[in-house]
Write a protein that binds this DNA or RNA. Structure first.
Lengths: 135, 135
DNA sequence: TTGATTGCAAAGCCTTTGCAGTTCT
DNA sequence: AGAACTGCAAAGGCTTTGCAATCAA
């Protein structure tokens, strides 16, 4: 199912800006709104920040992108099509590492079993200290 | 070790504002800076927002409080003395539930073993859908 | 044509900062 | 006196919103 199809089925339109923002997030892997904007502006001029914000919100609503909070500031977006992963963020050195969702499978299963809670693994970020910083 | 002692040993001073902010966070269990301020203002007048921010930062530095992000907006603080817990946040109904750290023990151990990563359980928040909302 | 979409500028949250007055030691 | 602390007001990030012009279908 492609972008246009998803948009049209909800009465939305396909615009160059929307294509570019989705492409930016996909290409960059992880991108803050500001970073996505920068990427887009390398390809098209005059695109505004507010369009990026509105588009990211829309794309998230369409389940085409997701976001997490990897730091205190702006959130980071990534394509929903990208393989799911959990983030490990080191609060000492700032290093960010991705680990496979299988790492949290036991947790997810147990939350489902004991609390009926359906965890969103793609949104999960674990803060702590990485190997170098905790020793 | 009490507040005054911790402060003094680092060259800081004990002030009514600092006592009140710590008390607010402790009493409220979870509090945003704004909520802490409101609580403090019920006991003392004229306390300023910036004092609350500065104090929370200081208390966190002294390991007396911790913070997590339970929603998109302001962070929530809780006393470090409170029993550690993980937060489950339902993104559909907004419900917030606390679960015991034992729930994530396997995850924590495995991150330590395979990635040398020391997870901060008290900061961990799992987003997803709660029982009612996922069915 | 007509409703969706955009750019622009202004406003809004949340938080930080500079500074001068005040308080503690 | 000297340093820490506070309130106040202004500024700073990040994000949202109102509106008129523009564009997709």
């Amino acid at each position: 199912m492609d972008l246009q199809e998803r948009l049209r089925s909800r009465g939305y339109r396909l615009t160059p800006q929307r294509q570019l923002v989705l492409e930016a997030v996909t290409e960059l892997g992880h991108a803050t709104p500001e970073e996505a904007l920068a990427w887009v502006r390398e390809r098209a001029s005059g695109v505004n920040v507010s369009t990026v914000y509105r588009t990211l919100e829309l794309l998230e609503e369409l389940s085409l992108v997701k976001h997490t909070h990897l730091s205190h500031g702006a959130p980071t977006y990534h394509a929903a099509a990208a393989p799911e992963h959990v983030h490990l963020v080191c609060r000492t050195c700032g290093d960010i590492r991705e680990v496979e969702p299988s790492a949290v499978a036991p947790l997810v299963e147990m939350l489902a079993a004991t609390h009926g809670f359906a965890a969103d693994v793609g949104h999960l970020t674990v803060f702590g200290d990485c190997e170098r910083c905790s020793s």
